[in-house]
């Protein structure tokens, strides 16, 4: 029964992913056409200067020929519909092609190399954030749940609400202003000093650059996470077995960390796994503010330079991660609650 559900869910997921990639392809092909045509004109004109000893007629013919070759290379001679299909098919085969303008630091223009270069940096920042926030959140949430309406509980729910609409990038701007310029403790951006130190100093230098964005992100999201965990734990604390445990004289610490945390763990783990998945996509604006050269920054540069292959590749990866988290969540719930079925009636 569960296997059937699993297969059905995964197939639905794959189909949905294909539909989404086609949508992106349709959207981007429209944009790409103008940009690519303009780039071809520019390139051909640049190369034409190099031709020597040719008559104007020959030159014109050469330019036309070059243009035709380039247009064929970019599939611009084919109808819009076909181009949409081809780009979608390429993306689905993980063949993201090469970028139009952007380069990896080693000069490689393949989209995979460019993304592969940015991805680890995003993971270091945002995945570390999720881990730190989860650890702090569990501790804070547990202690808040132990005394509902106590000072810690009230403080957490208040700060959660106060920071609710606070944009992380604005807090980042303030942090940079105060801790990089007014009181220069931390660097204002980037991932390493210039010139970069070598050896163990390089690691320290990296951590030094990491601390301000990490601090900002953790400070902002720890409260909400603690509040959520407090809610999960609190609903478990009201179960009868907790009362029974307390009645048996089991110390409060063990009730909290042994009994309650254990039963709350599945819900917490789901939350953590989902945020780990979404953390890989990074955050466009926070990375921009801190000059952190990760996926978010890459994406924004690609938007500005209209570099469609890079955009397409990044979006495809982000959508894939979203999809993975979504399906995983469904599968976990399906496993925990057999009543959930595809198309099932409640």
């Amino acid at each position: 029964m569960y296997r059937k559900y699993l297969v059905k869910r995964v197939i639905y997921g794959i189909l949905m992913y294909v539909v989404m990639i086609f949508t992106y392809s349709a959207l981007f092909n429209r944009v790409a056409e103008e940009t690519v045509r303009a780039q071809i004109e520019e390139q051909v004109a640049k190369e034409a200067i190099k031709y020597r000893n040719v008559t104007p007629e020959q030159l014109r013919a050469l330019i036309e020929e070059q243009k035709a070759i380039k247009i064929r290379q970019h599939h611009l001679d084919q109808p819009y519909f076909l181009r949409v299909v081809w780009r979608a098919a390429d993306t689905l085969r993980l063949d993201f092609g090469s970028s139009t303008l952007m380069k990896a630091p080693n000069g490689d223009r393949s989209v995979l190399a460019i993304i592969g270069n940015a991805l680890p940096r995003t993971i270091v920042l945002f995945t570390t954030e999720v881990l730190v926030v989860t650890a702090l959140g569990i501790v804070l949430g547990l202690y808040a749940a132990r005394r509902p309406n106590g000072p810690l509980d009230r403080a957490i729910s208040l700060v959660t609400m106060v920071t609710n609409g606070l944009p992380a990038w604005w807090l980042g701007m303030l942090m940079i202003m105060f801790f990089s310029y007014a009181v220069p403790i931390f660097p204002s951006g980037g991932i390493q000093s210039n010139p970069a130190p070598a050896g163990a100093a390089a690691v320290l230098d990296f951590l030094w650059h990491l601390s301000l964005p990490l601090l900002t992100l953790v400070f902002l999201s720890v409260w909400g996470t603690a509040y959520l965990i407090r809610n999960i734990v609190l609903s478990n604390l009201q179960e009868d077995y907790v009362m029974a445990a307390r009645a048996r004289g089991i110390p409060e610490r063990r009730v909290l960390f042994g009994h309650t945390l254990r039963t709350s763990l599945p819900a917490i783990m789901t939350m953590v796994i989902l945020s780990l998945f979404s953390s890989i996509a990074g955050n466009i604006i926070v990375e921009g503010i801190f000059g952190w050269p990760g996926i978010g920054n890459l994406y924004f540069i690609a938007v500005q330079q209209n570099d469609v292959p890079v955009l397409m590749g990044t979006l495809a990866i982000e959508t894939f991660l979203n999809m993975l988290g979504f399906i995983l969540l469904d599968l976990v719930y399906g496993l925990l609650d057999p009543r959930i079925k595809v198309g099932g009636k409640a």
């Binding site: 920071t163 609710n164 609409g165 606070l166 604005w170 303030l174 202003m177 990089s180 204002s188």
Partner: peptide, 30 residues
């Protein structure tokens, strides 16, 4: 503010109020 160097020049009165308003608005709805 961001593009015209408010952060480097420490023009805090340019950066803080608009963000504070966003935060306050978010807080009231929360």
């Amino acid at each position: 503010a961001l593009s015209q160097g408010a952060m480097i020049n420490n023009l805090w009165w340019w950066v803080i109020p608009p963000g504070l308003m966003i935060a306050l608005m978010g807080m009231s709805f929360a």
